[in-house]
Design a protein around this nucleic acid. Structure first.
Lengths: 260, 260
DNA sequence: CTGCTCATTCTGCACAGCAGAAAATCCTAT
DNA sequence: ATAGGATTTTCTGCTGTGCAGAATGAGCAG
């Protein structure tokens, strides 16, 4: 089976391993759908190659996705995300636009920092890693792309919550009984002053994350983060990390504005 | 096979019939995902009953949806839409909130008008029927729920486009080579004055639709529409249709505001 | 604490989903 | 405009996947 990951969500009830009785054909369809949402267009051949199935199989799965509005046919040979994978007002999907705008700046961030870099968006009380560029040094944080974490447990989630009023934060955290709202709100006040959030191993052991918001029309729509092995993290470099993150965020914001 | 419909999209290349070589297990997973997005929470038993499969089968499919982030487990026994089916900033999904807020007013509209009523949202250059209440008189327009139409061919799509600047409309219609942009823009000027759009059989033969926008914070996020058999439509009743639609739209807007 | 309901796990088997072949379509180069 | 190659789409035989049902586990109400 190809390299594939579930969500490392820490709830005792939510599976982060592949289910014991996986339904492979359903899984393949869902994987294609996720690729369409994150990356834009795919052809039958590309989908077949990535899934490791025959083109006839990929074609059948894409027909199912089209039939149920998870995909639409391009003008050419490709398929792209259909209405179910986009919500009202987005075309192409904001998620795909964010991801496309982020890959260049994330690579730049990795080049200058030597550490892995990520882009996250918030969905409800979780954040989702929609783009991930891995550092190429031996000791590094591996790709988080596709993973989902509780919103308040990540630097990106924290910095996006910091852009919201306290009442709205409290409402979002209703879906997170494990989170202490008062503690989170207190932390947000510091983050609002600093403009950047530091996460000392709260999402994952051995990983420190530093995150800054990416804004579209003044609204925080995503966050760009550095993922640093805790053995390499230096608190005194925070201003430097922040400068790099600010540059990456501004580059993404500029790309989003010219994109339309 | 249970009653199920594809999208009646008119492109010669896009299937609106069930695919010839359907993949049933993928199809079942996608149907569950669509229900989660539109309706909120589902339990294993509910999913099994609606699909017509055993609970063990439904359970396996839901585990696949959780694994690939199309679903998350509720605090109780239910599953709801996961991060893939929500975009950033929505919790619960705006689509589910719109649908929940619309069902009461749609029933009221059917009661007062005697015709079927729908709620649509725009995704790119299409509109999607996310809620549908059918009239119970013998001659009526049947449910459109789940269907997707080109944006400019429906009254709901037209009235939502009317809330956008001409430049943005032209950009959206780039995905619709069949649409004459000048004709659409001309029609939009009339719709902006009237506040309501009338569609004389442009989406479907024998159906006249009248639609009005539903706004959230001043933005048109959806449209509420009456679907009237063309034999029963009376142009001189347009002010009456408009008054009913306006009342339904205002009721939905009020429900959305109190919901948060 | 008990009983009921629902969720979850496990297993044998039938048929659905697979790959491969063939046909059709599309795109690019000449 | 035509030809060739690449890709998509359709069709079919076969096998292993996904199904239902049984058994077990979990949760909730009385």
């Amino acid at each position: 089976m190809q390299n594939e990951q579930g969500t490392p969500f820490s709830s005792s009830r939510e599976p982060k391993r592949r289910p014991s009785y996986a339904v492979a054909s359903a899984d393949n369809a869902l994987r294609i759908a996720t690729w369409l949402q994150l990356e834009g267009s795919l052809t039958v051949s590309e989908a077949a190659a990535r899934l490791g199935v025959a083109p006839s199989t990929a074609h059948r799965l894409l027909q199912m996705l089209v039939y149920r509005d998870f995909a639409v046919r391009d003008a050419g040979r490709g398929y792209r995300a259909g209405p179910v994978l986009e919500l009202a007002g987005n075309s192409p999907s904001l998620t795909a636009r964010l991801r496309a705008a982020s890959l260049g700046p994330l690579r730049g961030l990795v080049a200058v920092s030597g550490d892995s870099a990520n882009l996250v968006i918030r969905t409800g009380d979780r954040v989702r890693f929609i783009a991930s560029v891995e550092s190429d040094v031996a000791l590094r944080v591996s790709t988080r792309e596709g993973m989902v974490f509780p919103v308040e447990r990540t630097s990106g989630g924290t910095v996006m919550l910091a852009g919201l009023p306290d009442e709205e934060v409290a409402e979002i955290l209703q879906g997170r009984p494990e989170a202490d709202v008062a503690t989170v709100l207190s932390r947000l006040r510091m983050v609002r002053r600093a403009g950047v959030a530091v996460n000392l191993e709260r999402a994952e052991e051995g990983v420190v994350a530093v995150g800054r918001a990416v804004a579209l029309a003044g609204e925080p729509v995503a966050a760009v983060c550095l993922a640093i092995p805790s053995s390499r993290y230096r608190a005194q470099r925070l201003l430097e990390y922040d400068a790099w993150l600010r540059a990456a965020a501004e580059a993404m914001e500029a790309a989003l504005e010219t994109d339309g």
